[in-house]
Design a protein around this nucleic acid. Structure first.
Lengths: 243, 243
DNA sequence: AATTTTCATTTGTCAGACAATTAAAAGTCT
DNA sequence: AGACTTTTAATTGTCTGACAAATGAAAATT
């Protein structure tokens, strides 16, 4: 295998791309062992350090895992839902925090996606999902809850709703939308009154899901979306006046 | 800064995590320069190679970029939509190809998410989006089109639909759902008859978007989703019989 | 003042060494 | 023979030192 030495990219980036393409194309099955670092260095005609930097890039994307020892090496990693989840959350969080996305835009995307899950969740949710939703609504009503804890419970509630659809691909796709909103929501200080209203809306959603009424769940989500946007607007306006 | 030497993880992974946390927390603004590799090596009390491996991990996630020269170094990178897009597509493609996800599950997730965009797209689409959709429908009718080209045009059509919603966060979230389906769709050989039907359904969607009729767009998407699943089922059944 | 040259800084790459880990192979004892 | 221990070989992880390449800033020159 050869690498273009006149390219603008680093050698390690080029090698990482070459190996990544091989993996993504499906030419290397899961758990297949890559050649050892020394062999790769020889194949690509670079030093071992350069190969190592390339492998670390791939490891950062969960494409490979490495193991020491006699039968060790780098292996094609099966990308698990959990890994894909956390990658998605990190990426989404950074995207939102670094690109001056308005609260309205993020909110709109989040609730549009969540509404896509609601009818499926109403049909398929297990008692477990319902119990989680109820438990989180109850937790949200506890006195003395910090804003962070309230937001975390909010995320857990919505995740249960999404997971209720019983479609892991959908859950994965929604991970970023649901979880990356938390940092934005944490910017809002909830008054007792607004918490009460949100808890009531959550209760309504849980009722609809329990009744397996997709349309009602959708309507309740719309209400929650509208209230969230309204709440954010009033909070930001209050801050603008103060500043 | 110190690193736990008894941890099971590699030093480079620990250092990457430490720096990543700093960036994600927002403590380092975009375009801020990290300490030089030599300084980081001293701070973490490791060699420069170890620091470099950590930095390559972060670069693989588009969290930093590096530059050579006197005023060079590693800089906190603004995560661009384009970067987030391609990461999402890679991750989604791998997730689908490595986890025995059924065509039905993937399809359900894809169309559920796309339906979430349809009403917004009907309201907000620009003439550009509409023109792209029409152009792709036309391309799909050209004789002699390969299956790959037909699928690529299919993806372009749906991307225009999604982008029509005018919400970049939504477009980002849908990137995986829309694009990662292509490898799955490429497994299907389209007959002339099925292409004709799909083109007609696409035309119907475009009509609804043009008329800014969200409900009609939704209904057309449901039709397309049903036909796609039906098509896949018949193709897979035919293969099972042959084998 | 404009241009060219020099220089210092920083990342990119290489070579070689040793430590740590691990499983297989070889050896040893019962 | 079988169970246990020791040795060995392979492989990744880490360190050190070196040099090349790029690049902006400073110094020198015209």
């Amino acid at each position: 295998m050869k690498i273009d030495p006149t390219s603008s990219k680093d050698l390690s980036a080029q090698i990482a791309s070459a190996i990544r393409d091989t993996i993504v194309s499906g030419a290397m099955p899961v758990d297949e062992r890559l050649p050892s670092e020394a062999e790769l260095a020889e194949q690509f005609d670079v030093s071992r350090s350069t190969v190592r930097e390339a492998l670390k890039r791939l490891a950062a994307q969960s494409l490979i895992r490495t193991q020491r020892g006699a039968t060790g090496g780098a292996f094609v990693n099966r990308l698990r839902y959990a890994d894909a989840y956390s990658q998605q959350i990190t990426t989404s969080t950074l995207l939102l925090s670094m690109n001056a996305v308005s609260f309205e835009t993020a909110c709109e995307a989040r609730y549009a996606l969540e509404r896509a899950c609601a009818p499926l969740s109403a049909t398929r949710r297990t008692p477990d999902h319902l119990a989680t939703m109820r438990a989180e609504v109850h937790r949200q009503g506890q006195p003395g809850l910090t804003d962070e804890a309230f937001c975390a419970s909010d995320v857990a509630f919505h995740r249960a709703l999404v997971d209720g659809a019983g479609n892991p691909v959908l859950s994965y796709q929604l991970a970023g939308a649901v979880e990356a909103m938390q940092p934005l929501m944490n910017m809002i200080t909830f008054t007792a009154r607004s918490r009460e209203r949100i808890i009531a809306l959550h209760g309504g959603i849980a009722d609809a899901i329990e009744a397996q009424d997709g349309a009602a769940a959708d309507a309740a989500l719309v209400e929650l979306a509208e209230y969230t946007v309204e709440l954010a607007r009033s909070v930001f306006e209050a801050r603008a006046v103060k500043a």
